[in-house]
């Protein structure tokens, strides 16, 4: 086995060249190149994490904006509904008031008219009594020639009309 047979002649050469090469690898590759490559990996991981965080923040922001929009829309809807309801109520109340006023006016005029009618009827009745009394006096005078007093004729007419 040459690895063991040759030890006495090659040990110094092997040791020297190995230490030389390994020292260069350790200094150049291990201590200079590797940390830079690791730094690149860390920078990338940080960037990815930062981007993820930013994306999550943006998502939260959009969610809150959405919520605010929905809330505002709800408020607006409710406001519009209230306004419509208020307008409806006001219109109803207005109509009712107008109807009531109109009803009252009509009732008043009806009452006036009734009063006037009753008046006119009273007057007409009185007129009829007078006319009837006159007619009665006239008839009595023609038939009997007796003069009937105006008051007497009137009371007689009233009594017969009331019967």
């Amino acid at each position: 086995m040459p690895q063991i047979d040759q030890i006495s002649t090659i040990y110094a050469s092997q040791l020297l060249w190995l230490l030389l090469v390994f020292a260069i690898i350790f200094v150049v590759i291990g201590n200079w190149m590797m940390p830079k490559i690791e730094g690149t990996i860390h920078a990338r991981n940080d960037k990815i994490q930062g981007d993820l965080d930013a994306a999550e923040k943006a998502r939260d922001e959009s969610a809150s904006t959405q919520a605010a929009y929905t809330a505002e829309m709800d408020t607006a809807h409710r406001g519009a509904h209230d306004a419509v309801q208020a307008a409806k109520d006001a219109a109803t109340r207005d109509t009712e008031a107008k109807l009531k006023a109109a009803g009252e006016a009509v009732a008043e005029r009806v009452a006036h008219a009734e009063v006037a009618l009753a008046d006119a009827r009273g007057r007409a009745l009185a007129e009829i009594e007078n006319v009837a009394a006159d007619a009665v006096r006239d008839i009595v005078e023609r038939l009997s020639g007796a003069k009937v007093e105006e008051g007497e004729a009137l009371s007689a007419v009233r009594a017969s009309l009331a019967a």
């Binding site: 002649t9 090659i10 110094a12 050469s13 092997q14 060249w17 190995l18 090469v21 590759i29």
Partner: peptide
Amino acid sequence: HNIAFTNSAAFMLVILGVLWVFMLGGM
């Protein structure tokens, strides 16, 4: 002590070169 540049030393240098080129791709 004998410190001849042997085939073993030559392959160590080859390893160094290959490693260096490989790592260069990561730089």
